[in-house]
Each structure stands twice: as C-alpha cells, then as structure tokens.
C-alpha cells in the first residue's frame, strides 16, 4: 500500500528537518521549552510519516522492528543505571556530573543525558506500539 508520488516526495523532503528538529529539542531540553518526551514524539512521527507514505513493506530493510525493541530496552536499563550511579557519590538520583556554566548547551550535569535517554526511549516505544497496531492489517 503506497500513497501517490507527491505525498511520498514531500514527506521525504520534510523528514530530515523533522529529525534535526527533534534532536535539537532533545539536546537543548535544559535551555528551551521541550524535553525528552516531546522530542521522542517528534522523532516517532517523522518515521511514521515516512512509513505511512511509502508503505511499511517497502521500508522493511531500512527500519526494523527489532531495533526499536532493543533501543527501548537498552535506554530503560541505562536510565536506571544512570540514576543509581549517584549512590557512589552520596545519594540515589544524585546529579554527579559537573554542572558547567549557566545557560550554555553543555551544562546541567546529567540532565541532558537524561533527556537523550528519555527521548530515544519514547520514540522507540511509540514505534513499537505502531508496529503492534500495524500487525492487524
């Protein structure tokens, strides 16, 4: 099942910008509005747009369901590992990294890392739900 030529090409032209924008929201979540969850939703939407326009059968070799499951599990485990590393430095959930300068992209200790993990996890999770719904067709 494939949509028409115009829809396919337009989604192709828009999707790199959407991916870049979601990575921007993910990395700059501690400076600007947004955060991990929103970035993950945009990331999932940019892939779902491509899949609905081109047909999920045609993209089977480029995106794979197993990858998304693996990414989601790895990210869930790494969030837990990251918050429990703080035990070594004093307390659970302790922000153990150097805080940096106020208002720069590299600052805030482990908050950007937390945003990245949550963003990838949410994006992969929505893709897994999408695949589960797709199985009924």
């Amino acid at each position: 099942m494939m949509m028409s030529n115009i829809v396919r090409t337009t989604t192709k032209m828009v999707s790199p910008f959407l991916v870049t924008y979601s990575i921007y929201i993910m990395l700059y979540g501690h400076l600007t509005p947004g955060g991990g969850f929103q970035a993950g939703v945009i990331l999932a939407v940019s892939i779902i747009l491509l899949m609905t326009a081109h047909g999920s059968k045609n993209l089977e070799e480029k995106v794979n369901e197993t990858w998304f499951k693996m990414i989601e599990n790895i990210m869930a485990i790494s969030i837990l590992i990251m918050v429990s590393i703080g035990l070594v430095f004093g307390a659970m959930f302790y922000n153990f990294l150097h805080r940096g300068t106020f208002g720069l992209p590299i600052s805030g200790g482990m908050i950007p890392l937390f945003n990245i993990f949550v963003g990838l996890k949410v994006g992969a999770g929505f893709m897994v739900i999408y695949y589960a719904l797709l199985r009924w067709f």
Binding site: P16, F17, V19, T20, Y21, I23, Y24, L27, L104, P105
Partner: peptide
C-alpha cells in the same frame, strides 16, 4: 541542515556550532 540548525537554535556560541555540525553530519 546546518542552516536550519543555526536558525532554530539562534546562537553563535562555539559549543552550539560544534554540537550542530556533529548532529547534522550524522543526520
């Protein structure tokens, strides 16, 4: 994509440019 990144992030700090070039190169 680099032009898009500069417009979206709206800053000329060196950290911003470094992160942007790495991210847009991967994309």
């Amino acid at each position: 994509l680099m032009i898009f990144w500069m417009v979206v992030s709206a800053s000329f700090h060196w950290q911003n440019i470094l992160i942007g070039s790495i991210v847009t190169f991967i994309v």
